[in-house]
Design a protein around this nucleic acid. Structure first.
Lengths: 114, 114
DNA sequence: AGTAAATTACGCACCTTTTTGTAACCACGA
DNA sequence: TCGTGGTTACAAAAAGGTGCGTAATTTACT
């Protein structure tokens, strides 16, 4: 994800929430505090590398907060920030729009109009 | 973009509107009917390959309507569908959220708090 | 009259760039 | 030795760019 200085806020959000993982991670974090390993369990197909990368991106964007605790094994907790929480209903609205729009899509399952 | 059958509506929308172009194309189409070459002019850095691919994806998702007219040179027009129009305010809301959240981000421009 | 070029919206093949996965390694303590 | 939460290097896969070909008609030139 190159960082083209767009100054279009929509483009900028998209750079952060685009892709396969961000919405999923936000979904799981919405359930409450999660540790790195929790998120991997919630989401078995993400590689640990991608998980760290995506979490850092969300952190930088102010969506996720990372808290590191001293001691071994190292404990790190992830939470949605207040801003992250405000994002949730917007994503839900997109999901609702998608479902509502289902009827107009060409990939529609077979219709039995008899 | 692999088509993993997710059945999570948010994941599904994301597969469609993720990436650099969809939001931009929707933005320009919101201004009214556009032809292929108009969209390329609006958006000089997209390649014709990507433009066709993205438009097809948006069409399949029911966001964009493609109308082909007989004659040479071939004329093709693109418009937002009613569903596509309904998507616009949702994207705008994301943009607003982004701007409102700016203060919490680490990539904040230098602050002169004096 | 005959030929050539331009036009529009692509499809296709090939190649480069970017993203993602895999595996190994690190720290430390129980 | 295992578990935690990483980093790094290398490999594979996916995304994206470039350039050529195509259609039928008009215009432009010779």
């Amino acid at each position: 994800m190159k960082d083209l200085v767009s100054r279009c806020p929509i483009e900028e959000v998209m750079q952060v929430i685009s892709g396969r993982w961000p919405s999923l991670l936000i979904y799981y974090l919405k359930q409450g505090t999660k540790r790195f390993s929790d998120l991997r369990r919630d989401n078995p197909t993400i590689s640990h590398k991608m998980l760290t990368l995506e979490l850092r991106k969300l952190e930088e964007a102010g969506i996720v907060e990372r808290s590191e605790f001293e001691g071994y094994p190292l404990r790190v907790e992830y939470d949605l920030t207040p801003a992250g929480l405000k994002l949730v209903p917007l994503l839900d609205a997109l999901g609702d729009w998608w479902d509502a729009t289902a009827a107009g899509r060409s990939t529609l399952p077979v219709q039995l109009t008899e």
